[in-house]
Amino acid sequence: MRAGWIGSLVTHALIAAATLLAWPDKDRDLPEPSAIVPIDIVIGDITNVSAIAPPPPENPAEEAELTPEGAPQSMAPPTPEAPEAINDPRSKQKKKDEPRRPVTDLNDIAALIDRSKKEKGQTASTSDAETGPNARNAAGAGTEVTASEADAIRSAIERNRQKFVDLPDYERLRVTIQIRLNADGSLAESPRVIRSSLPASDPYMRVAIDRSLRAILTSEPLPVAPDRTRRATFTINFYDR
């Protein structure tokens, strides 16, 4: 009897104590402690492997029509060539044969700038004469390019231009690009970066150059005068105030 009373008292005391404890209501939802995954990442550069596999035909439908009956309908993906094929003269020949506009290699921008600096050094007086204030005035002075045409080109590029203002010290970023337009407003050649306020190796300068080139390329064809019959060259300065 006495043992029963003691047992009952202990049990009730334990129940009362349990109500005083805090039982976290969300602990069950929390994941169990886990070990940190060991970091073992090998990083390699594959920029030396050129993506040289020939692009599939522009119009697969036409290609399919030429496929004889019974032949597999789906074309096997082109087999990528070995890395060393980057130096294969055949691939270069193939690129030469393509009637495409030269491609702007953003990675070669530094080389472009260096080259343009050298060229500028050789023909400084001519370049200054052509790109200086006199040339600006020439827009409405009876030359082929009119001020309204320049305004239209400016507007078109500004619509597609991502500003620099989100980049640190954007006031220091200035890019000058030369473009040559065909009579229909298409680019006669790849835009040429002729000046940048910082070396192109600066990551922010590189982004500013990328954005400027992209603004031009996405605006192609640029709005030229309807009666244009000749190519025209423009020097475009990109910067933010």
Binding site: E130, T131, G132, A135, R136, A138, A139, T143, E144, V145, A150, I153, R154, I157, E158, R159, R161, Q162, K163, V165, D166, Q178, S212, A215, R230, R231, A232, T233, F234, T235, I236, N237, F238, Y239, D240, R241
Partner: peptide, 19 residues
């Protein structure tokens, strides 16, 4: 004559977007 007519025009682009 063509070189005179082909005088380069300089354009300043200072506006754009931040999309």
């Amino acid at each position: 004559a063509p070189s005179a007519a082909h005088a380069e025009i300089e354009i300043d682009i200072t506006r754009g977007h931040l999309n």
